[in-house]
Nucleic acid binder design. Structure first.
Lengths: 250, 250
DNA sequence: CGCTGTACCGATACAACGTATCGAATGGTC
DNA sequence: GACCATTCGATACGTTGTATCGGTACAGCG
């Protein structure tokens, strides 16, 4: 992990030619993102990047390795999250956080590979910092402590990530196998039925069937996301109300 | 994706010798889990499984391929989650769900690879079904509809997964680089400081510093998990109270 | 304009992966 | 004991990231 060189790349100029190919770092980033959008994280290889740019493989190693290219691509994606930058001003905290959640979900749905390549730590790139700065705006009007704002935002983003990851994975599997949810059920039922004793699993079979019936063949995702978001915002609201009551007493 | 053969393996006998090596499927599962625990998901290869069992590589393909071995290992892990099976009886819903969350978190910390290998859909293995049946117990005493119970439990598990994944990834990176959180900050600060204009990021820098100060060098994880769990349970409580009020009116 | 040194890049190679293939050995069944 | 499907060893293929080596193109300088 060469933190400094990655950071220098993230914060440096990316529109000057590097090497003899005339290509800029921005070109490499654009190629990587295009491949990721088309073929997912598994389709991103240095050979593929080189081929798309019309150069040989080793020309992609001029400024860094794959890990750094991925970091650049991820940070680059965050740049388009709040283009104007002012959409979150003037909303109450609940509407603001709802907008934040939806923006991140839309981004995840547009670029499913965001959740396939496992980015561990915050990359501290310029676009990501900018993004987080915007996302903290709705919490400024709340009586939460700064450390609590950090935790609330982190949890919100983790919720979006979890739901969106699950949804994109399901969607990718559906596309790969050609089976939607009910078709999948019909495919496994013949194998599952004779071997599963439903009396061993009374709750999960009853609840599972009810959940499937309530879904009515619709794709898992949208509703689960909204339901969870409501629960989460309700919980955050409880904390905010408690802090307000404390402030009122003091 | 050969659903049927995977399902047959999950639900079939695993303690009879397969092939001429005298090894049982349980032996292969145990070897896979041992390798996963020691070296993580990246360390699991069919060659490594074979080497650990003292056979040649292709002997591991007697009953299936890597994908199926992974499915078996994951389901096997869930067997140890609620050993007695009765710990969740008699608790009110909040204590019960808290126990569920902690049990899953402990499992994820003990076997970090659970979140490294991306298991998309429920595997429908016997241990996983049993697990879900147990976990639905605390919700039985609530006035929630069955479909809501399903969503609540899914969200709870997704929260645990998100938090635990983040924590295990951070821990793994810390072990790999030898840098804990404050050392990491000190490592990147010299590169970050001259290039970042803090006036461009007033909120995130202020909130980030406050969060770091509040953490006091402690490892990220435990507190974030508990904080988020409280928010989530508060939000679920709001829904339950609302349902109770509706039932009362009716 | 010509020289030189450095940085870059093409070709190749290596180690690892999952697993297809092919032939030989093996064990169950009649 | 013979037959034959099953299984396993050896090998190989195609893929990955990237180290290595050697040639080459270009920048700086006289």
């Amino acid at each position: 992990m060469r933190f400094d060189s990655t950071l220098a790349l993230l914060w440096g100029e990316d529109d000057k030619p590097v090497g003899r190919t005339g290509l800029t770092i921005a070109d490499f980033i654009a190629a990587a993102i295009a491949i990721l959008d088309e073929h997912g994280a598994a389709g991103l290889s240095m050979r593929a990047v080189a081929a798309r740019l019309g150069v040989r493989t080793m020309a992609t190693y001029t400024f860094g390795n794959k890990e750094e290219l991925v970091a650049l691509a991820v940070d680059r994606i965050y740049r388009d999250l709040y283009p104007g930058g002012e959409q979150l001003e003037g909303l109450d905290w609940r509407r603001g956080l709802t907008a934040v959640a939806h923006a991140n979900r839309d981004l995840g749905l547009a670029h499913p590979w965001l959740y396939e390549l496992q980015v561990v730590r915050s990359l501290m790139g310029p676009c990501e910092l900018q993004k987080r700065d915007h996302e903290l705006v709705p919490l400024e009007s709340t009586p939460l402590a700064d450390a609590e704002k950090d935790q609330v935002l982190t949890q919100l983003l983790l919720h979006v990530e979890g739901m969106t990851r699950m949804e994109t994975m399901l969607r990718r599997e559906r596309d790969a196998t050609g089976l939607d949810d009910s078709q999948w059920w019909q495919a496994i039922m013949p194998t599952l039925m004779p071997v599963v004793d439903r009396r061993r699993f009374p709750l999960s079979s009853r609840v599972g069937l009810a959940a499937q019936a309530a879904r009515q063949g619709r794709f898992w995702g949208e509703e689960a996301f909204e339901f969870g978001l409501d629960r989460l915002l309700d919980g955050i609201g409880v904390l905010i109300d408690r802090r307000r009551a404390m402030d009122h007493l003091a």
